[in-house]
């Protein structure tokens, strides 16, 4: 199993390298010149050439890539083309925002969704199961802005609680104030991840429930609760952690609609800004951060799946 994890680590590293090449090459083949963008349209030829030299843009492609990658590994993401600020400080605050929202969403949404999904698997075909399936399928179909609008209408306008727009950053606020601020975006995101998590955990547990060893447990007179939580769940961990990891990655990288809707500054809106201002350096840095998030989360999920497999944990 140790060698398997090492192999998996290797694959993760190769993925990161491959993605870094694609990101770097992708931003290079786009029209526009970083030095030109940085200095603006009015810059003289000589100024642009000097800037190119300073940014290392006159060096061969491979050398540029190698420099960029080593700097990235050291934590230096370069300087923004549009605002002359280091990328790390641009990202800093927004990363906190995003992490705050996504970790709170995960803490609330994941356990509740899994419980609901597993309960649906305990009573397949029951009224509860059918209602839950209906609701979760509807939630999958509903776009985030629609869910968000419904929540704002209900809480802010009808009940008068919570904020429709998140104001300011996370700094200088108490936890409760923060939660009041972020309650609606977090609820929206919980709904988004819940639909998939409920359906996948239900399917994973139901799949295991049809195995002969579950029938055997029934014929041994084992209570239903123990059959689900001891016999079935252990064998459903692999597929479930994978879905959880994918959803967590989505929370860090893909929540653009919710960020825009509630107007809070997170990473997803930052990358949109980067594209709008043609800030290649910013896009490169964020692309790598998103890639790392995915790779690390999937790595953890796979290791958890290995660990839950007795054949790998206890070889013959």
């Amino acid at each position: 199993m140790f060698s398997l994890i090492l192999k998996r680590l290797g694959v993760g590293l190769i993925t990161v390298l491959a993605v870094s090449m694609i990101i770097f090459a992708g931003t290079k083949i786009l029209p526009g010149d970083a030095a030109q963008i940085r200095l603006g349209q009015q810059a003289t030829e000589a100024n642009v050439a000097a800037m190119r030299e300073r940014l290392g843009l006159d060096k061969p492609f491979i050398v540029q890539y190698a420099n960029w990658l080593t700097n990235f590994a050291k934590g230096d993401l370069g300087v923004s083309l549009s605002s002359d600020v280091p990328i790390t400080s641009l990202i800093g605050d927004r990363y906190k925002n995003t992490l705050f929202v996504s970790s709170l969403t995960a803490l609330i949404g994941v356990p509740i969704s899994l419980m609901l999904g597993i309960m649906a698997a305990m009573f397949p075909g029951s009224l509860y199961d059918r209602i839950l399936t209906f609701v979760s399928v509807s939630l999958v179909a509903a776009p985030e802005f629609f869910t968000a609008t419904l929540l704002v209408l209900l809480f802010v306008f009808a009940l008068g609680i919570g904020n429709a727009v998140v104001v300011g950053s996370t700094e200088n606020k108490g936890l409760f104030e923060l939660i009041a601020h972020f309650a609606l975006p977090i609820t929206t995101l919980c709904f988004v991840i819940a639909s998939q998590l409920i359906r996948m955990s239900r399917a994973a547990v139901l799949n295991v429930m049809s195995s002969p060893y579950i029938e055997m447990a029934v014929l041994k007179g084992i209570p239903r609760k123990r059959i689900i939580f001891r016999h079935a769940l252990l064998n459903a961990i692999g597929p479930i952690v994978n879905v959880v990891a994918l959803n967590l990655a989505y929370l860090v990288t893909g929540v653009i609609v919710v960020e825009v809707y509630f107007g809070y500054p997170g990473l997803a809106t930052l990358i949109v800004q980067g594209v709008q201002t043609r800030d290649f350096v910013l896009i490169q840095g964020l692309g790598m951060i998103f890639c790392l998030t995915y790779v690390v989360l999937m790595l953890i999920a796979d290791i958890a799946a290995y660990a839950s497999n007795p054949r790998l944990r206890h070889p013959k």
Partner: peptide
């Protein structure tokens, strides 16, 4: 009850 296939009847985990 004893089933035909013990391999399938024991919970692998």
């Amino acid at each position: 009850y004893l089933a035909q296939s013990a391999a399938a009847t024991f919970n692998p985990s």
